[in-house]
Every structure is written in structure tokens, then in C-alpha cells.
Design a protein around this nucleic acid. Structure first.
Length: 492
RNA sequence: GCGGGUGUAGUUCAGUGGUAGAACUCCAGCCUUCCAAGCUGGCUACGUCGGUUCGAUUCCGUCCACCCGCACCA
């Protein structure tokens, strides 16, 4: 992983944000090659998911929305993770995973117990209750133990509830709120009425425009709306390079389907297949991809099912994309909060309903990192090591490079410039005449450029050039006029 | 947020209480007829702020950032 991070910096893919000021945690910048790669990923997605299908249209919603949109979506209330720290054991718990109960013997409170949520929580609590009873030297029956979340504890109880780790009361902090949405102010006044949020996901911009798109794009269920855009989350701990950052970009589709309870499952599985196949087309190594099905008891209450597409990064198997069957929760919420109907009239069924939705949601930055990890290779060539990024040609930042074999032979340089000028009208092409030819090849290997064209002495005689393949390092000889079509076939 | 570690050139690393060196990279020139060749020259660094000191890149503290572990992760 360190090698990849180092290469990203060295070759101008990714820089730490504000590096000259010491950097800022959780933010990254994309350099000249990074921005090309990133753009190619987004273009490939858009081309395949929007232009390549007749049932999906695009949109681009603003990053700042009406604050009520985030009330409706539930993000204002629940996009928080209240946390509790144990001052003694230095452990940290989510307040809704930390359970506690008062212990009664014969109607008298003898103390409190705490435990963590899980299959053992009840038995653990009972065991601790018995210990408590023994210590208090009480006779009589223990009353039934009713576990509650720490969030339900009143402030006077914070000092009485013991830490689950140490068993001692008084070491737990009150639950500390942490909303992951960035706040800002719209307009000149900095009061509560001006509070707005940077969106933590692009999805709500799609739901909020559902009616607009429906009324203007002549779409019929089933259909999808796609969007690519930045989202912001004030993560507690950004981690693993660009994998979890505070500013990131999503590629999301909301695919609207009929409301029948029997219908969603087919669409859902289709989407998992479609998305999995797509990841292979952009060069992610198949053996590093997998799926993770969320167990039913871990799903949000409005969610029918959720499958993650996982990628094996050097730091572990992590989520790349989430495909969720979300019922009609979001549209219903927006209907409720906005007072505007989100119903769809189905001409075939002759009925009105609020559509259900399947949501494939992919992170651009995570995809880019997965591509770097898939493409990076160190090879041995004639006793020398070669660093190479084996990008799928369609997403490679630079599609081809043109080299004059010698820079001090005017005819060769002239022909090289001519080829370069003609190719650069089609895609990003790099011209390099500095240094030995082998060095130029290796430089392009590290940038992941799939093809290098070299103009040599034969070229000015017979009009052919050599075209060298990045992965095999083999060369073919082509007439100048065939270069463009040869590369077109492979990179578009 | 806690504990531990780290911070010197674009990269990877040396080193010192008297302001620093290497390799590779990069740039220029010479040379060079296809895979990091050679020669010459050149650019570039002690994360930040403060303290101790005659003097700090070095010692101490603060902050920032990065790495590992814990915890957290719509």
C-alpha cells in the first residue's frame, strides 16, 4: 500500500490536500494523471449506465439542498453516532450498542449492570446481576432484568452505571453527539434559520427531483435516475488514504420499480449482477471482488435487502459499492415532508402508487483506489525492475505516447509531431523526446499508458512506425495512417 | 477520541547542539538506431509554532500530518 501511495504522489495522481500548510486530515487532491483517471472512471460509468441503456436518465442536483430535505431523509436526526467513552479502560462504545439495567431485589434497587448488545447480552447481564446481589449480601429474588440503551439513561444515572469492561460505576462519559453532516450558513445571517448542510449523499437530490424528471423525461416505470457528484461526511476517523475521506464523490442510481412486494427481488438481483460485471470492465481483478449480503437483522427498518460489492484492498476486504432495496421509504418521506405527491400513475396496471427503488451506490474515489491496487505491478525485466500500472485501456489517463527515436534528427521529430498532433484530437496523448528510449517506455509504464509509438529511421523511409504494447512490451509495425484506428479499437 | 511509532530533496534513506549528505528521479548539454546505458553540469529538504541555549534540523513542549493497534464506520 505504501508503494502505491508513493507512486500516486510521484507520478501526480494524488496529493494530500493543502500539503504546503501541513495537510488536512481526510481530504485529498487529484493531480494531472489522477484527474484524468477519475474522469475516465466517471465517463465509463455514465456511458454504460446512462447512454448505454434506454431506461436511465441523468441529472445533477446542487450540493446544498433545502434543510428540510435532510429532515425528511432522517439525516438530521439519525446521521449521528452518539458515543460513550470509558475513562478507565479507554474503550469507546456506540451509545445505542451499550445496554444497561437497574437491578432490583425485593423491590429495592441494589445497583446497575451494563453490557454490550449481542446474543449474550441478557445472560451477561444476569450474571453481573447475581454478582451484584452476592456483594450486596441480599437475600430474595432478583427481579426480571430489562435492558435499555444507554441513550435512555437520565444524566443522574451516568455516574451510577458501570462500565461493561471494568464493572465499576463512574467511568463512563455522557453520550456525545456527533452529526456527520457538515453545516454551513446560507445568506448573510448566521442564525439557526440559515443553517444548511453539505449533502452527505447524492441520493436525496434524486428523490427530490423524482417528479420533475417523471414529468419531463417521458420515462416509465421501471426507470432510473443517475447522478455523479461530491458528497461530504465529517468522519470521525478518516482512514486508509482516499478510501474513507471527508469529501468524496459518488456515482448513484435510483432505479424506480413497481410497488408490488413480489417485484423488487428480481430487479435487486439483476442489479447486483449488472454492477459486478461492470467492475470487471474497468479492470478490477476478478479474484479481488466479492459480495457481502447484509444480514436481515442489521438492515435499516426501511430496507428490504442490501448487498455490498467488496474489494480486497491491501488493508483488508472493504466495501466498494452498496446495492440496496429501499422500498419506497425515501419518496414517502419526501411526500410527507413536502406535502407534494410522489405517486406514479401506472398505465398498464391502471393504478397509482409510490414506486419502490433499488439503489446501486458507488464511490468514485474507492473505485479509483481499487483500480490502482488492481493495476499496480512490479516486474522483473532483464534483471531490472519495472513498475507498471496495467490500467484497462478505456480508463488509462494517457492513451498513447509518441516518441521520436532521436531528437536531433529533424525528419524524425517532424513526423512524430505530426502523429502527436493528429492523435491528440482524439484522446489524451503524451509527447516525449527526452532521454533514452527505454527510459521513456518505463516512464509511460508507470503512468499506465497502454501504447507507445516510436518514429525511427525506417519511418521516414517507408512511413511506418512501431507501436509498443505496455503489458507484453512487444512491438508491431504499422503504417502511419493505421495508428488511429488501431488505438481506437482498443481504448474506446 | 485513546495508546504506540514516525516526520530531512519529487522518492527511498543517512547524519549532526555550530543550519546537512547519498542513491534514484527531475532539468540542461554531449552522446545514443527500441526497453530505467554513459559523461558533464544543475534544481530541490530538516512538518508547525514556541521554549531551553551564545547558537536548535538535533533537546523539551504545542500543534499539524502520516503509519500501526483499540474503538467507530450512513
Amino acid at each position: 500500500m505504501d508503494d502505491i501511495i508513493s507512486l500516486c504522489k510521484r507520478r501526480g495522481f494524488i496529493f494530500q490536500s493543502s500539503e504546503i500548510y501541513g495537510g488536512i486530515n481526510g481530504f485529498y487532491d487529484y493531480g494531472p494523471l489522477g484527474v484524468e483517471l477519475r474522469k475516465n472512471i466517471k465517463d465509463a460509468w455514465w456511458k454504460d449506465m446512462v447512454h448505454g441503456r434506454d431506461d436511465i436518465v441523468g441529472q445533477d442536483a446542487s450540493i446544498i439542498m433545502h434543510p428540510n430535505a435532510w429532515e425528511a431523509s432522517g439525516h438530521v436526526d439519525s446521521f449521528t453516532d452518539p458515543m460513550v467513552d470509558c475513562k478507565e479502560s479507554k474503550m469507546r462504545y456506540r451509545a445505542d450498542h451499550l445496554l444497561w439495567a437497574p437491578i432490583f431485589v425485593e423491590g429495592e434497587t441494589i445497583g446497575y449492570v451494563s453490557t454490550l448488545e449481542g446474543p449474550e447480552s441478557q445472560s451477561d447481564a444476569e450474571k453481573k446481576a447475581n454478582d451484584l446481589k452476592r456483594k450486596a449480601a441480599k437475600q430474595g429474588e432478583l427481579a426480571a432484568i430489562e435492558l435499555k440503551e444507554y441513550l435512555e439513561a437520565t444524566p443522574d444515572l451516568y455516574d451510577l452505571i458501570p462500565s461493561p469492561a471494568t464493572g465499576k460505576p463512574g467511568s463512563l462519559t455522557p453520550p456525545r453527539e456527533f452529526n456527520m453532516m457538515f453545516q454551513t450558513y446560507v445568506g448573510a445571517l448566521k442564525d439557526d434559520s440559515a443553517i444548511a448542510y453539505l449533502r452527505p449523499e447524492t441520493a436525496q437530490g434524486i428523490f427530490a427531483n423524482f417528479k420533475n424528471v417523471l414529468d419531463t423525461a417521458r420515462v416509465k416505470i421501471p426507470f432510473g435516475i443517475a447522478q455523479v457528484g461530491k458528497a461530504f461526511r465529517n468522519e470521525i476517523t478518516p482512514k486508509n488514504f482516499i478510501f474513507r475521506s471527508r469529501e468524496f464523490e459518488q456515482m448513484e442510481i435510483e432505479y424506480f420499480i413497481e410497488a408490488d412486494e413480489g417485484a423488487w427481488e428480481d430487479y435487486y438481483h439483476q442489479w447486483i449482477g449488472t454492477r459486478m460485471e461492470w467492475h470487471k470492465t474497468i479492470g478490477l481483478k476478478e479474484e479481488l471482488l466479492s459480495t457481502h449480503v447484509h444480514p436481515k437483522d442489521k438492515l435499516a427498518h426501511y430496507s428490504r435487502a442490501c448487498t455490498d460489492i467488496m474489494f480486497e484492498f491491501p488493508f483488508g476486504v472493504q466495501e466498494l459499492e452498496g446495492i440496496a432495496a429501499r422500498g419506497n421509504y425515501d419518496l414517502s418521506q419526501h411526500q410527507k415532508h413536502s406535502g407534494k405527491s410522489m405517486e406514479y400513475f401506472d398505465d398498464v396496471k391502471r393504478e397509482k402508487y409510490i414506486p419502490h427503488v433499488i439503489e446501486p451506490s458507488l464511490g468514485v474515489d474507492r473505485t479509483l483506489l481499487a483500480i490502482m491496487c488492481s493495476a499496480y505491478a512490479v516486474e522483473e525485466v532483464d534483471g531490472e525492475t519495472r513498475n507498471v500500472l496495467k490500467f484497462a485501456p478505456r480508463i488509462a489517463p494517457i492513451k498513447a505516447a509518441v516518441f521520436p527515436l532521436m531528437k536531433n534528427k529533424p525528419e524524425i521529430v517532424e513526423m512524430s509531431r505530426r502523429i502527436y498532433d493528429s492523435l491528440r484530437k482524439r484522446y489524451y496523448v503524451f509527447y516525449d523526446q527526452a532521454g533514452a528510449i527505454g527510459r521513456r517506455y518505463r516512464r509511460m509504464d508507470e503512468a499506465g499508458t497502454p501504447y507507445c509509438i516510436t518514429v525511427d529511421f525506417d519511418s521516414i523511409e517507408d512511413g511506418t512506425v512501431t507501436l509498443r504494447d505496455r503489458d507484453s512490451m512487444e512491438q508491431v509495425r504499422l503504417p502511419e495512417v493505421e495508428i488511429a484506428s488501431y488505438i481506437d479499437e482498443r481504448v474506446l
